[in-house]
Amino acid sequence: MSQVSGSANNTKRQSTFFTRFKKNYIGWIFILLSVLGIGLFYFYPMVQAFLLSLKSGMGANLEYVGFDNYARLFGDPTFITSLTNTFIYLLVQVPVMIILALFFSVLLNDPKLKFRGFFRTAIFLPAVTSLVAYAVIFKYLFGNDGLVNELLLGMNLIDTPLNWLSDPFLAKITIIIAITWRWTGYNMIFYLSALQNVDKSMYEAARIDGASSIQQFFFITIPMLKPIILFTSIVSTIGTLQLFDEVMNITNGGPGNSTLSISMYIYNLSFEYTPDFGYAATVSYVIVILVVILSFIQFRVAGDRD
């Protein structure tokens, strides 16, 4: 070891040149495999999908139509419904979930808390539950004579059972509750693991200065976790824009398309109706464009430069 560290004693200029060269060259080696893999398994199919979006027709009978599919989007009421629904989910659900996940992770990070492992697992469990079970449970809870209605009736909050799954507005609420239930624990993991990388001494110093735990949360935890908060909000945005499982399994897009998401519409165009893969690819690219715009905004807001 001492032999090698001798080379670090060269003049400063040399070492800077050396590190800069190394930084570039070695860095590329670290990322090479990923660039190749993503190129092959994602970008190559993505280019194909884009070419497909310039065609239209049923199944294998595709014809080149240029950008007609993109024009068709604007006059397609089902697409517009699915877009509106997806944005409602996004605006309501993502902030609520991120805040809840942060709250739980800070709470469950307390080393003095007993049965931490149990509580963490309990909150994480919804994320691993099989979709089939998840759907059955939600339909049961939110059915007309389900537990939720019984509870609300019992507390005298409502007079007649609410149609959670067959009322257009309430069905959206049900979907939002379902997504939040399933994915809060998932996001909690990212925060929990990141919290371990926050230097404990910062909290001690703050405590000595007399900062309350709420102040510590806002002035230490949140700034320290900023990279991860950015990560989870982008990932959740993408996840919600591609929302499919919950809608498919709990409401099947109904009642009357009122819970239909963009991804579910893509599924319907490809598999449920007579397939039009060209138009389905076009709708997919709408998601790509939306995510690019939203992620750009999120990166900007988070000030990624630091």
């Binding site: 419904t81 009642p255 009357g256 009122s258 319907n268 449920e272 109706y273």
Partner: peptide, 12 residues
């Protein structure tokens, strides 16, 4: 199935 999705929205 395509028509039925449209129809079910109207039936609501």
């Amino acid at each position: 199935y395509g028509i039925e999705d449209i129809l079910s929205a109207e039936i609501q």
